[in-house]
């Protein structure tokens, strides 16, 4: 009997804890509902209806219109190449950092993150100042009798801006995964007969795939949906899908079409995330979907 009452009171205690836990979760539930779930439902409803509120799939398939298709293609290629360039910069840098004798690697990490402390629109304006036709770069080029470069208002300018903006988001997970490989695992590979190249291809690379996957998601997804960089560095001449969606909402005021394009874009983003987000659970840097 005594034991029974003890157990009961323990159970009550557990129940109380559970109730308290639920109370603490309320702010987060409100946050998620208010800023994620409800807007998402709103967008989804707008996407499958027309101005009169009747069901239609036209908005969802509007992405295949020639104009939109062109913008989607531009978005995809800019996102693809900016992600690729970020990997090509971040991966060798991480390998070099790992093998270097620099003992205080956190300082390097700090320097890498430093630009993220500044508003990214400001940084893009700075890039604009550097590469505009009468900008700092061309001033230096003409000063040494070289022909000025016309980069501003081309896809190259957008690519440059995106790489500049998103590089830390690639660098952090990749560096993290490369640095977290234990030294004795690499020594074991050498011990078993691997030269430096084989250690890189058979040990370091496969063990850092998780970090690369995270980096791809963190760079590819935002650059797919980017429109501010395109506005500033593209001079309004290059249309990314993000720009078109923005215009549907703010200029044309066709929220149904804007929502439809957003949902289609979201589908693209989800598919790529799923491709690269797999097998990420092992790495600390991994963000698995």
């Amino acid at each position: 009997m005594l034991r029974y009452t003890v157990r009961m009171s323990r159970l009550k205690g557990k129940d109380m804890n559970r109730k308290k836990g639920r109370l603490l979760a309320i702010p987060y539930i409100i946050w998620i509902a208010g800023f994620t779930i409800i807007p998402l439902i709103f967008i989804l409803v707008k996407a499958v209806t027309d101005v009169n509120g009747s069901l239609t799939s036209a908005n969802l398939f509007a992405i295949f219109d020639p104009l939109h298709r062109k913008a989607l293609l531009m978005s995809l290629s800019v996102a693809f190449f900016s992600t690729l360039i970020c990997i090509l910069i971040a991966y060798p840098a991480s390998i070099i950092l790992r093998t270097s004798r620099i003992t205080n690697k956190s300082i390097i990490l700090f320097i890498l993150i430093l630009p993220m402390w500044m508003n990214f629109v400001l940084r893009i304006f700075a890039v604009q100042l550097l590469i505009s036709n009468n900008g700092v770069l061309n001033y230096i080029l003409t000063a040494v009798n070289l022909p000025p470069l016309k980069i501003i208002n081309t896809p190259w300018a957008i690519l440059l801006g995106m790489v500049y903006d998103y590089l830390p988001y690639m660098m952090l997970p990749v560096l993290n995964s490369v640095l977290s490989i234990p030294e004795d695992v690499i020594e074991a590979a050498q011990d078993l007969g691997s030269n430096r190249f084989r250690v890189l291809t058979h040990i370091i690379f496969p063990l850092s795939l998780g970090g690369i996957g995270s980096g791809i998601i963190m760079v590819f997804v935002p650059s797919m949906t980017e429109f501010v960089i395109a506005n500033i560095l593209g001079g309004g001449k290059i249309q990314l899908l993000g720009n078109i969606i923005e215009q549907e909402f703010t200029v044309t005021m066709d929220w149904n079409l804007g929502s439809g394009l957003s949902v289609s874009l979201m589908a693209f983003v989800l598919i790529t995330s799923m491709i690269f987000g797999r097998n990420n659970e092992d790495t600390a840097a991994g963000i698995s979907l």
Partner: peptide
């Protein structure tokens, strides 16, 4: 270098390839 030596090591923390 280690990869050219005719000996093998068992490490304290196993160092298996995960």
């Amino acid at each position: 270098p280690p990869n050219k030596r005719q000996l093998n090591t068992v490490f304290q923390k196993y160092a298996l390839f995960t």
